[in-house]
């Protein structure tokens, strides 16, 4: 069991309204990612779910029961902190045993649980070391180990990978996804990195300034973002936005084209520009193209793109890949687009 329902939840620090009323249904066993820019309130909401912050108004239901004012320990949730928050003077074994000892679990059972967690997370070799003697990735694993032995109804992760280097991050991402499949427990995962969100999530909630802009599967968010913010936040490199003059009968004030949908063409195309910086990644190439009256556009081409700095190019995009936004940033139904 691990379903969590947020009903009109808000949070105010002093007179700063950090979380605007939020409604969200988190299903049992799902991997949901809260993603959004720094300072938009993701951690605050996660901490409210954990019980580490009071809820200013609204209700948090866990497994159908109102848990708004339940103390953290009684909510049956486990959290993995960004700093790992391991107890520095205890061995790895004691760190993992700590929640079990507090719950007065018999010693034999504690040993068994530590052994099984150590096996799942490959902790066996350093159970008797102190956290200070471990690498970042190992500490991360210990923090997860301490969370899983409690068999919580949901795991809460607050940017758990942000202190790791890039290659380790990719590995841990896979391990956490793997763990989710093994344990089949609800996981709420906070990150500002949309790549983590896209690769790990069953569903993503995109946050912006204390509100959820959109909730959906990674593909839904990529293909049908509800507004300009979500369209710009999901996808890498970022979507290109081109401001257009609204005309009578067509409220479009901005169109968006993802770099991977922008094409170089021999025909006239929609835009003309000059190639700027070229980034070769081997498997693909990012071209930054300066288009007069529009600004820089990013284009994702094949790895062996022959264009050079300063070349003049014509650009186009398939009509069904061009997104239209109104002046408020809301996505509009597709209409034919014929250039500025």
């Amino acid at each position: 069991m691990g379903s969590i329902t947020l009903k009109q939840v808000t949070k105010t620090f002093g007179d700063v309204n950090v979380i605007k009323p939020i409604d969200l249904q988190i299903h049992d066993g799902e991997f949901i990612v809260f993603v959004g820019p720094s300072g938009c309130g993701k951690s605050t909401l996660l901490r409210m779910i954990a019980g580490l912050e009071d809820t200013t108004s609204g209700n948090i239901d866990i497994d159908g029961k109102d848990a708004t004012n339940t103390p953290p320990a009684k909510r049956g949730l486990a959290m993995v902190f960004q700093s790992y928050a391991l107890y520095p003077h205890m061995s790895v074994r004691n760190n993992i045993a700590f929640p079990l000892k507090r719950a007065k679990v018999p010693p034999a059972e504690i040993e068994a649980k530590i052994a099984s967690a150590a096996k799942i997370l490959n902790l066996g070799d350093y159970l008797d070391r102190k956290p200070g003697q471990l690498s970042g990735g190992q500490r991360q694993r210990v923090a997860i180990g301490r969370a899983i032995v409690r068999q919580p109804s949901a795991f809460l992760f607050d940017e758990p990978l942000s202190n790791l280097d890039a290659s380790l991050r990719v590995n841990m991402r896979l391990e956490i996804s793997e763990l989710h499949k093994t344990l089949d427990t609800t996981m709420i995962y906070v990150t500002h990195d949309q790549v983590e969100a896209m690769t790990m999530a069953d569903r993503i909630a995109v946050f912006n300034a204390g509100v959820i802009e959109q909730v959906g599967t990674p593909l839904e968010l990529y293909q049908t973002p509800v507004n300009r913010f979500v369209a710009g936040f999901i996808g890498s490199p970022k979507m290109n936005f081109i401001e257009v003059e609204p005309v009578d009968g067509n409220p479009t004030s901005c169109v968006g084209v993802r770099p991977e949908h922008l094409k170089v063409t021999q025909d006239k195309g929609l835009w003309t520009g000059k190639v700027g910086v070229i980034e070769h990644l081997g498997s693909e190439t990012f071209l930054h193209i300066h288009v007069d009256g529009v600004g820089p556009l990013t284009l994702k081409a094949d790895g062996d793109c022959p264009l050079k700095y300063g070349d003049n190019v014509n650009l186009t995009a398939p009509q069904n890949k061009i997104m239209h936004f109104d002046a408020a940033g809301k996505t509009l139904p597709p209409t034919p687009f014929s250039g500025n």
Binding site: A73, S83, A85, L86, P88, M90, F98, R102, R150
Partner: peptide
Amino acid sequence: LDREQLEAADLDGAGPFSKFIYIVMPHLS
């Protein structure tokens, strides 16, 4: 003392007394 350690202890079910004995005192040693 890292506040997140105390919060982690909160979630791990440690009361004020346990937190003092197992987290604060070792930190103060």
